[in-house]
Structures are given as structure tokens and as C-alpha cells.
């Protein structure tokens, strides 16, 4: 048996230090999905053109399919699973984007939406009241084959309003899905 080419890498994911044994060129996307079972980050293209694998690094949106685990080592990332603030074992404070997505009934198949939400959350952390043009230029790096763009735009405006109304991120969940609007 030849010596293993795999190495151990440490990275911070959703506030926890995680150690993974992997090939150095493994994209962060596959580390998250296959090794850490954080499957909210989606594989859509693997070549950085669809946005489904978007995660945060220091609040900025990055494509996890374009970052190798060796370069990710020592860095800190947040995935869709870590976007909401956990208040205790049972309750989450959804991020305002997540809540706005529910309020605007954005999702159809929903597959692209974690990536969309991560991008939108990063946008709002830099532009508290983005214009339609800001939204279009940022979100156009993502693909939604269900074409939910109009509702995404509305949801981002709504999230911006929620954030400006309440500086602390997030709103109380238990937010009824499937309720009447």
C-alpha cells in the first residue's frame, strides 16, 4: 500500500473547528457535503457559474466549489446551516433573509435558494439598502431555473427593511410556513 496522499486539514465551519482528512485539491464544496454532511450547500455546476454552492467567509460570499481544502485550511466559513443564530437546542433566530424568503414565498424547487440567501445576506451586510441595480448585478451570478428572480428581489428589499427596523440580525422563528399570507 503506497503512502496516503491524503492530509489532515483544519478549518472553522459555522463556528466549530473541524478536522478533515482529504486530498489537498478537494473543493471545499465536497468537504462540506461529503465529509461534514452539511448538504445545504449545493452542487450545481462545480465550475463557479451557478452560485448554488455559495458560503460565507468573513461575511463575504464565496463559491465553495472554487476553493480547495488546502487553501481553506485555517480559514473560517459559514454555511446556510450556520446562518441562523441558535438561541438554544430547539430554537433558531432565522436570518432576516431567510425570514424574508419565507414571507415572500420565494422558493419553488428551492435547490438554488441556500446559495441565493447566502449571497443576499452578504450583499446586505455591505449595502444596507441595495437598489434594484445593486441586487441585479450581485444576484445575476446565480442561476434559478424556476425563475424566482422577482420574488428574490422583493425578499432582499424586505430583508433590508427588517434589518433597518431591527439592528440585531434575525427574527423569531417558529415562523409559520404554510400560513396564509
Amino acid at each position: 500500500m503506497p503512502e496516503s496522499s491524503l492530509r489532515v486539514f483544519s478549518l472553522n465551519v459555522n463556528g466549530e473547528l473541524r478536522k478533515v482528512k482529504a486530498a489537498a485539491d478537494t473543493p471545499l464544496l465536497w468537504i462540506l457535503r461529503d465529509e461534514l454532511q452539511l448538504t445545504g450547500t449545493k452542487y450545481g455546476c462545480g465550475v463557479g457559474v451557478c452560485g448554488a454552492c455559495t458560503v460565507h467567509e468573513n461575511g463575504s460570499a464565496v463559491r465553495s466549489c472554487q476553493i480547495t481544502v488546502s487553501s481553506a485550511a485555517g480559514r473560517a466559513f459559514t454555511t446556510i446551516e450556520g446562518l441562523a443564530a441558535k438561541t438554544d437546542q430547539l430554537h433558531l433566530h432565522l436570518h432576516s433573509c431567510q425570514q424574508a424568503w419565507i414571507d415572500e414565498d420565494v422558493a419553488q424547487c428551492g435547490f438554488c435558494q441556500p446559495g441565493m440567501i447566502m449571497e443576499a445576506a452578504a450583499l446586505l451586510s455591505k449595502h444596507s439598502r441595495p437598489t434594484d441595480a445593486d441586487i441585479d448585478s450581485t444576484m445575476s451570478h446565480h442561476v434559478c431555473r424556476c425563475g424566482t428572480y422577482q420574488r428574490i428581489r422583493q425578499a432582499i428589499h424586505r430583508a433590508a427593511e427588517m434589518q433597518s427596523a431591527k439592528p440585531s440580525t434575525g427574527t423569531k422563528t417558529g415562523a409559520k410556513t404554510g400560513g396564509k399570507s
Binding site: 448538504t39 446556510i80 446551516e81 419565507i102 422558493a107 428551492g110 435558494q113 415562523a175 410556513t177
Partner: peptide, 9 residues
């Protein structure tokens, strides 16, 4: 009805 599960990943 799947809205919350979708936005939470």
C-alpha cells in the same frame, strides 16, 4: 409548507 426547510438548508 417546505419554505422553512428550504431556507434553512
Amino acid at each position: 409548507r417546505d419554505g422553512q426547510a428550504i431556507v434553512s438548508g
